[in-house]
């Protein structure tokens, strides 16, 4: 079991309010991702749930019981740290066994569970090595193994992939998702990388300056961002934000168009409303082409075009936003 609910939780460090009152419900078995720019309070929020920090006010409930003042060791949660935080003086086996040893599980049981975890995580060949002798990906797996054996109510991940290189990150992302599907345990995952959030989450919590900007499934956030901040934060490449006359022409003080929702043509289209632009930089990736255009009267527009489009620096092209997929925002930046 692992439902967690935060009720009016706040956290201040001295005069700085890092977390302003937050309410959040996390269902059992959900994969929840806290995402936001650095300094938004996402790691602090995770540490509050873990019990590594005290809340300044409010309550944290785990499975319906008030856990606000319970020390981290007794909350039944497991955490995977950014630096992995493996015990450097213990072998992989001892690292994974440590939480069981702390729980005074008997040795035969420990051995069985550690071997199981090592097999699941492909660590059996390294079981007697020290963390210092492992690669980044292997260390990550040991950290996960240490979390799994406890059979926790929920897993907490604090930017676990940020120390890995890009290729490995992709693999580990898959592995963690698979793990979630196998274990069906609640997972709370903190990251600043919206790609990780979009690919892994059942539910994304977007945070800024200690406030929840929006909660929802990846597709909800992509389709219906509640405000400009979420709109810009979710999606890659970033949504184009247009103000002024070009926006007013489409019915709002500010509008947003995602790069993939703009059609490019080399000739002037028949329909009205196309923007004329000059190609600044074109990035040909094969599958896609990213065009950085300077559109007259609109500003810089990024476009995701077909992979085989033939446009180079200095070429002129017309851009037509898909009207149905335009996001409109009022003067305060809220979705209209």
């Amino acid at each position: 079991m692992g439902s967690i609910s935060l009720k009016q939780v706040t956290k201040s460090f001295g005069p700085v309010d890092v977390i302003k009152p937050i309410d959040l419900e996390i269902e059992d078995g959900e994969f929840v991702v806290f995402v936001g720019p650095s300094g938004c309070g996402k790691s602090t929020l995770l540490r509050l749930i873990a019990g590594l920090e005290d809340v300044t006010s409010g309550h944290i409930e785990i499975d319906g019981n008030d856990a606000t003042t319970i020390p981290p060791a007794k909350r039944g949660l497991a955490m995977v740290f950014q630096s992995y935080a493996l015990y450097p003086h213990m072998s992989v086996r001892k690292n994974i066994a440590f939480p069981l040893k702390m729980a005074k599980v008997d040795q035969a049981e420990i051995d069985r569970k550690v071997d199981d975890a090592a097999r699941v995580l492909n660590l059996s060949d390294y079981i007697d090595r020290r963390p210092g002798q492992l690669s980044g990906g292997q260390r990550q797996r040991v950290a996960i193994g240490r979390a799994i054996v406890r059979e926790p109510a929920a897993f907490l991940f604090d930017e676990p992939l940020s120390n890995l290189d890009a290729a490995l990150r992709g693999n580990m992302r898959l592995e963690i998702s698979e793990l979630h599907q196998t274990l069906k345990t609640t997972m709370i995952y903190v990251t600043h990388d919206q790609v990780e959030a979009m690919t892994m989450a059942d539910k994304i919590v977007v945070l800024r300056d200690g406030i929840i900007e929006q909660v929802g499934s990846p597709i909800e956030l992509y389709k219906n961002p509640r405000n400009l901040f979420v709109a810009e934060f979710i999606g890659s490449p970033k949504m184009n934000i247009i103000k002024g006359a070009a926006a007013e022409a489409l019915g709002a003080p500010t509008i947003g168009v995602r790069p993939e929702h703009i059609e490019v043509s080399k000739t002037k289209p028949k329909a009205d409303g196309a923007w004329k632009g000059t190609v600044g930089v074109s990035e040909h990736l094969g599958s896609d082409t990213f065009l950085h255009m300077d559109a007259e009267g609109v500003g810089t527009i990024n476009v995701r075009a077909d992979g085989e489009i033939e446009l180079r620096h200095g070429d002129t092209a017309w851009l037509s936003p898909q009207v149905s997929k335009i996001h409109r925002f009022d003067a305060a930046g809220m979705a209209a």
Partner: peptide, 8 residues
């Protein structure tokens, strides 16, 4: 960066 518990 610590809890009341660890501070005491």
């Amino acid at each position: 960066m610590a809890t009341q518990n660890s501070r005491s």
